[in-house]
Structures are given as C-alpha cells and as structure tokens.
C-alpha cells in the first residue's frame, strides 16, 4: 500500500473488477469493471436510478451497500471491508449530494477536525470558495443548494484527497456559482497543473455536463440498469445523450 500523496505514476489509482452490489438484499450493481489511473478524471453518466450514486457510495464504503462479489482496489490495496474513515485516510474524498445537517457542529470545527489545519489556513480555503461567512454556522443548516456545494468543495479542499468522487456537483447551483465551484473542483483535481504533474484522480457523475467546461476528462462511462454499458469520450457521449436521450443506452439492454 502507498500512503496518500505518494503513489507511483503511470499506475492505477482505482481498480474495480467484477463488482456486484446489493442494497437490502436486492442486487443493484452487476459486474462493474472500471479502472482509473493516477491523474485521470472519469465521468459517469446514465439515466436516473441506473446505479451511479450506488457505485460512488460503495467505493466510499457506506453502510447498506453490500459487496457480494468482485473487488475494489485502491492504490493497489483491496478496500472491501475497510471502514469509511480508513478509506478517507488513504486519500479518498467524496462530495455529498444531500449531506445531513448536524446541529451544533460548526463548519469550522469540522474543517479543523478533518484537516488539523490552523484557523488562518482554514479561513484562506474558505475565502477561495466564498464561504468565510459560513464558518461559524451549523453545518448545512439552512444552506442553499449552492452553499451546500461550496461547503462540500471546501471540506474536500482541506482534506486534500488523491481521489475525488463528485455526485452531480452542478445540481442546484446557479450560473455564477458554477464557475466558482468548477474552478475549485479543477484545483482539487490538479487541473491547474501540467498533465505530467497531475496526481489527483476523479470520478464525476453529471447529467448536464456543465462541469466539463472547467475540467478536462479522460473517459466517460455510460451506466444503465446497474451495468456499465459503454465507454468513450465524455463530451461526445453527452452530446449524443443531449440529441437522442438515453434511448440507445436503453436499447443496449436487449
């Protein structure tokens, strides 16, 4: 196993093989195979209910998502059975789509607990996503859609994950915020660095593709009915979906 931040280039960050996942006794994901290399960002597309979020939640190790078959290797280590925080410590980070509100827990306190950074450093990070006014607020309490996304990006940016999972980062965000969030996500994924220096990897769920204006992506995957049906260039696949809907994907089922 390689500790976070030190990982051999040119190798695989995430390697999923023959993965089957159940929720409440019902199989939701069937035979998923996916490889994401260091410095690569992949896009996950597919209709609602196709299993995209389930895949992210399974990779992060949340309860209720039972791996019945197959393996998930992260930085070369099998992580099935590891608790969520161990995965976070190895360098995984996830942006929640609908994070819970925790009464009495200030955003600043969570950021400190997650990073061990000083107050001054945390304020710097907060400023970058226009969240300094929220540091003393209870986490997610009364936050708007855009504020939740900015808070999530802020949490990830103090965590410095090597592998970032984002579930619809643009949903509920207005046009002004999307560039702010897009730029912050770009930084998370080392997109401001030259390709040979990029170490961070990502897996992003998007319906609209707006976020792709801010980050380069390496590959797209189309998910239908709990299976990855096809791979390709993310932008072309999205263009196809925009023009023809998911019809062709649905037809793959046959």
């Amino acid at each position: 196993m390689f500790p976070r931040g030190q990982y051999n280039p040119g190798t695989v960050m995430l390697d999923i093989k023959d993965l089957h996942v159940e929720i409440g006794g019902k199989e939701i994901l069937h035979d998923i195979n996916l490889q994401i290399g260091e410095g690569e960002t992949h896009v996950l597309m597919g209709p609602n209910g196709s299993g995209k979020s389930t895949l992210l939640m399974t990779i992060m190790g949340f309860s209720g998502y039972t791996v019945t078959q197959g393996s998930i290797r992260f930085k070369g280590k099998e992580i099935n059975g590891l608790p969520v925080n161990e995965r976070a410590k190895m360098g995984m980070g996830i942006m929640f789509q609908r994070p819970p509100t925790i009464s009495g827990l200030k955003l600043s306190k969570l950021l400190t607990a997650a990073s061990g950074e000083t107050k001054e450093e945390i304020e710097k990070y907060a400023k970058a996503v226009n969240m300094e006014r929220f540091l003393d607020r209870d986490i997610n309490k009364g936050f708007s859609g855009g504020e939740i996304k900015r808070s999530e990006v802020l949490q990830l940016s103090v965590q410095h994950p090597d592998f970032v999972m984002l579930d619809e980062p643009e949903s509920g965000v207005d046009l002004e915020n999307i560039s702010l969030i897009g730029a912050a996500i770009g930084r998370l994924l080392d997109k401001d660095k030259h390709i040979v220096h990029r170490k961070k990897s990502g897996l992003i769920i998007t319906h609209t593709g707006f976020i792709l204006d801010y980050i380069d992506t390496n590959q797209g995957h189309m998910m239908c009915d709990g299976m990855i049906k096809c791979h390709g260039a993310a932008r072309e696949m999205l263009k196809e979906i925009r023009e023809r809907g998911y019809k062709e994907c649905m037809e793959c089922r046959k």
Binding site: M60, P83, V84, N85, A88, K89, G93, I94, F96, P99, P100, I102, S103, G104, L105, K109, L110, A113, A114, D138, Q155, Q159
Partner: peptide, 19 residues
C-alpha cells in the same frame, strides 16, 4: 458523513453528541 472526512466512528459520534 464525518467518517468520510476522516474521523473515526468514535470521534464522529462524540462530535455529533457535543453538537
């Protein structure tokens, strides 16, 4: 949610109770 930010289950529980 807190474990995903790197807190152990015990730390997460204590943090929520304190809140």
């Amino acid at each position: 949610y807190l474990m995903a930010r790197g807190l152990s289950e015990e730390e997460a529980t204590a943090t929520i109770i304190r809140g």
